[in-house]
Design a protein around this nucleic acid. Structure first.
Lengths: 233, 233
DNA sequence: CCGCATCAGATCATACATTGTTTGACGAAA
DNA sequence: TTTCGTCAAACAATGTATGATCTGATGCGG
């Protein structure tokens, strides 16, 4: 069986170099996305260097890279801080997804091959088998599902943007559980989506994906809100 | 009179630090966007350091930042290259604009104040006075026009994305002249847009902006094509 | 065509200089 | 006593310099 790793799918590589094991960049980035580094936390170069057993030089470069990607904020002469991945951030991201993914979908429907359908159905079967038992696995399968649809899109920029956003949302949602209603909705959406793709209904598929992404975003936001309320209360 | 500088408008600052004169980052970035550094050209760290009279460290950091922003591509152990700002790149960018700007506009229409209208009309007057005589000035005014609409949007991420793309398109289009028909269209669009905003017609305004951006993108692409054909022919 | 020496340049490690920020002690004023 | 401004020391960002290592590219002889 294919493994669904959490890495840029073929043809999607925003940076231009990934390869090697765990670069400083990836380590810091994951720490941010996963929440191990807290919002607005100061990123002191020498500390990071020591913690990861490197010199300061690679750390400084990694931070600049993260700055360019928007995960880190710099203040002149005051160094870097973790960009808060808060509700606003998540909302911003998923709203952009609502705008972009339907367009990606529309194109995919017009280009989908028989093999694509087979693949989507295969993944969907795995999703249903797993049935959210292993949430991490669900997340990977779900990502794989959408990747099949977007990875060949001619607009590389849009596809990369989608992937970047996807990674953030995935990491955030990993902290939460799917509600029962959301589970049902996800399965329904996917099944309906496959049918629409088969039927070549590009416009309807696009609309459905828009609603799907919207629902997914709202779901995560609700969870964040609930979690924050619980912490505060 | 206010000056319309080509810098992030209030509240739009993708990076987190701008300030000082011309950082290495800005110099290299402009060289790329303006085409002084050619597509796929190798960016040798030591050369750049020497050319700009710095050590290698700041250069490497600038390159990483540019990598994060997508202007530079890294190959492991082979260093950096200029990401080609070619027709595909421009198309990708403006297509995303077609998706995002209408959404930004829709919100603006629902939030526009009387002062906003005044400001838009003032800028539009300046645009018409200038009437494309000074293209650079037109570009700045046009950017200012749209900035008024987008700068207060709650989705900072989307606004930053717009600004980043805008800068690229501006730089590319600076190489070309507006065709007469495009000039007329731009003026028409702006005038109609102001009317729609006044009337609170969010949906129609959004559609118009979509067409406006689409037209602008196509216009640039046509110019690039023509220019390439001329060079090849 | 293949294998190998050679070379340019990336990447990383140190060490250090300079400069701006932060902090907390100290003392004057209210 | 409390409040506030000043100031120095600690801290850390930023830039410079230099050397070690390793990779990929190039050109040559087999």
């Amino acid at each position: 069986m294919t493994d669904f790793k959490a890495r840029p799918p073929v043809g999607i590589d925003a940076i231009g170099a990934s390869t090697e094991g765990a670069s400083i960049y990836e380590l810091i980035r994951d720490d941010i996305i996963e929440g191990r580094l807290k919002a607005n936390e100061r990123l002191v170069v020498s500390d990071l260097a020591q913690r990861h057993g490197t010199s300061t030089n690679p750390v400084r470069e990694a931070l600049q890279l993260l700055r360019g990607e928007g995960f880190v904020i710099f203040a002149p002469n005051r160094g870097a801080r973790v960009r808060p991945i808060d509700q606003d951030f998540v909302r911003d991201i998923y709203e952009i997804g609502v705008l972009i993914e339907p367009a990606l979908t529309r194109w995919f429907v017009s280009m989908a091959t028989h093999d694509d359908i087979i693949e989507l159905e295969r993944i969907q079967r795995l999703i249903e088998e797993n049935n959210f038992a292993d949430q991490l696995r669900h997340s990977e399968l779900d990502t794989a599902f959408h990747t099949v649809m977007y990875q060949r899109h001619y607009n590389r920029h849009a596809a990369e943007l989608w992937w970047k956003h996807r990674e953030v949302l995935r990491a955030v949602s990993r902290r939460f559980n799917f509600t029962l209603s959301r589970r049902a909705q996800v399965l329904r959406d996917h099944r309906e989506l496959i049918e629409l793709i088969k039927a070549g209904e590009a416009e309807k598929a696009a609309e459905l994906v828009g609603r799907h992404v919207e629902g997914s975003g709202r779901h995560i936001l609700e969870q964040m809100r609930a979690s924050n309320a619980a912490r505060a209360g």
